[in-house]
Structure formats: C-alpha cells, structure tokens
Write a protein that binds this DNA or RNA. Sequence first.
DNA 1: AATATAGTGTGTATTTTTTACACTAATAAA
DNA 2: TTTATTAGTGTAAAAAATACACACTATATT
Lengths: 218, 218
Amino acid sequence: MLSYFTIDCVIVTFHEGDLKVLLTERNEYPYKDWWSIPGFFVEKGEEMEDAVKRITYEMTGLKDIYMEQLAAFAGVKRHPEGRILTVAYMAFVRYENVKNKVKPITNYMRQAKWFAMADLPELAFDHTDILMLAMKKLKANLSYTLTPYELLPEKFTLTQLQQVYESILGITLDKRNFRKKMVNLGYLKELDECQTGVSYRAARLYKVDRKKFLKLFS
Amino acid sequence: MLSYFTIDCVIVTFHEGDLKVLLTERNEYPYKDWWSIPGFFVEKGEEMEDAVKRITYEMTGLKDIYMEQLAAFAGVKRHPEGRILTVAYMAFVRYENVKNKVKPITNYMRQAKWFAMADLPELAFDHTDILMLAMKKLKANLSYTLTPYELLPEKFTLTQLQQVYESILGITLDKRNFRKKMVNLGYLKELDECQTGVSYRAARLYKVDRKKFLKLFS
DNA sequence: AATATAGTGTGTATTTTTTACACTAATAAA
DNA sequence: TTTATTAGTGTAAAAAATACACACTATATT
C-alpha cells in the first residue's frame, strides 16, 4: 500500500574506447563498503525526473542531461529492512564535460568512480540486475536512439562513433560498411573541420542533425 | 520518501481481427464513471507480479498469463489526492479462454468491457498515456517477442497470425511475403491438422516452437 | 448437379540492404 | 626523409525485402 520510493540512476559515459558507468562506494548499512549505482529517496512532492537530475547534478556537475526510464524494481526482499521500491533510470553524459567533477556528496557514500562496463565490481542490492537490464536496453535500441550522440562530443569523428557502437554492441564492425551505412542514413552533417592535436592524419568531424534523425524515426 | 503503490495492467487480447483491451468503469471518486485500466494497490509484502496475477485472475479467470513490465508512472499530479505511484504492466490473454468470465469484482468498478484498440473511450488519470506506451512497445518489439502467440490459440492459421501482426502494426501486409518470411524463420511447426467449422477451404494449422524461437532471439 | 462464395496457397523478378574484403593518402614525429 | 599511425575509399556477391495475380478447395445454396 505504502512503500519507500527511491530512484537509482545508471550514469553512462564513453572514454578512451570504453563504455563506463559511475558507481558509488557505500558507507552505510546495508552493503557497507559495496559499490552501488547512485540513488536517493524521492522527496515528497518531487517528480522522479527531478530526483534523477538532482543525482546526476550532484555526481557529475551536469544539468540538462539525457535520461530514460529503465524499469521499476520492487521485490520485497531487495532491502533487508523491507520493500524499497526503486525506479531505475539511465543517463548519458559526455566525459569531456564531467571528468574532474566527480566527488562524494553525502556521508552515505565514500567515493564515486567510473568503471569500465567490462570490468565491474560486485554490486549491492539487485544493482547488477539493473545494470544488465540497462545494457540490454541500450544494445537493443542503439540504432534508433540518439544515445551515441549523447556520449560523444558535439563534434565527433566517424571512428569515435564506430567505437561507441562497437563497445555497446560488444562486436567489431567493418569500417567501410559502417561509414557507408551511417552516412547514407542522412542525419549526419559533415563539417568543414577536422580533429586537432593528434599525431597522425586528422579525421573529419561530424555533427548529428537531430531534426533529420527524429523525422526518420518517429 | 513514502508513496502509495499500485499496479495497473493493460490486458490485451485478439478477437475477430481486432486487438482489444480490457477496461473497467470506475464507480468511485476520482474519475467516477470514467473508463480506466484495471489496477489495484499492491499489498504489504506482496510482489508486484503477484499483484498483477491477482488482477488478471479476477478480471479474466486466467492464471499463468504472460506479462511484461511497461514503466513506472509517478507524477505528483496524476491523482488529485497526491502521488500514487503505479507500475504499469501489459498482459496477454487468449480470447477463447476468457470470453465469458469478465465480471466486476469490487465495488470500485461498475463493469469491465473489452474495447477495440482503435475505438477507445477517454480514460481516467494518465491511463491514455499508459495505453499509448503499451502499444508503442508492443509494436516496436513485435518481431522478436512471443506476444503474437500469447494472443492466438495454441494452434493457429497463418492468416490469423498475419491479422495479429497487421492489427498491432496498423498496416496491411502482403500475404505471400508474410508467409514466406514467417515460415523461413523456422520456429513455426506445420501441423497435420486443419481448421474446422469454416464454410470454405480449411486452412492449415501451425504451432510455435518456443525453444527454436528462444534459440533464435537470445 | 451446378453454381456461388469465401478464403487458401503459391512463384518469380526486381530492388534494396548487407556483407566481405585491402590498399593508398595524409599528417606529425623522429 | 623516413617512420608510424590513422583516415578514407569501391566493388562484387549474397541475402533480404518488395511488388505483384491467379488457380485451388471446401462448403453452402439453389
């Protein structure tokens, strides 16, 4: 009838060829010293989405992040003190914007750290399930969502885009076929700019045309 | 922090070429006399899935139905008396098994009725949003879920299967291409039986081979 | 017995999409 | 100028999707 109500947020980024997720080390019973997905209670009168924004802001310093609801988890045994219903979200952030801002903010958590998706610690509660579901959804919807472009800088190279696809799908893709296909979709804008600061041939930069994207997929 | 906690369930079936949803007429404030998706409070210590089973059993007389979680809806304004968090589910039932069992069970609802998806009344609360989301998900995942086979009798004709696809997708499909494709997928078992009781050439019956299906999509 | 009715069941050609595959061009650093 | 490193490109083959129309079968009706 009445239940405690929290949100948990899988905060995902992409850095150095790896998909990464932000985890917090708990400093409190239960699962003290375990890593977990950041989450908080939703305040009375607070919208869920605002609670997610609150968390992502506190964890990364970013506002206006892109988020999606994942699912509700409400097993009566997920917390030893009784049911705590959590609505899990996924949020996507650009690593360049966030990298040095991660800090612990409450005394519930000792530290926060980015973990490569392929190298995760054991997680508190049912957070491993939540994370697996997040990855599954990310994978399944990849080609008709804007998530790759939420993970990359606004201007990106096709190689970076391919790396995002590869790390989400967990497979390698053929360079020529990937480029042909992405360019043919028609929602990428080729810019007159190139990468800078690389010690080899600089790659062409692209932007996503969100209007064209939405026209294509809605 | 604490919230009321309900589940709502979009119960879907297929009958006479139409996708149908079971709605209940409310007999209580708020939205008295409005149609709504069936839902109840989740009891203390009760698992969400059991609450859904409870509803679908009370509404249709069926146990062991197939269900999927849709999303949580928790807007602070969705109920005039304050936040009531609901986790929405979708459930799929075979019309042949259920048709005469629909009845009102509580004094909260005056009657229950099947509505064709294309001809819905205005709904209470945010139930129209819930229903639209259900349809969207159903459509998006159609070709890699077993939902069509949860809506049809165990033995079905290819024409019936095509009708399910057409009414979910909202488009008409080419008969020859549809058959070719479904049969080529390899998870349909052609039976040695045909339809009975029709006043024209009886169609071949098929079953789905769930093992082969799962091998294909997992 | 003949006919009407209603849905079943089938093939082929065309287009589109996907896949497989390897070398040259450009740039910065040494 | 040489080396190292990544960018950028085309074509052929296979697979999948699409477009399209008619003869067959079973029953009901007269």
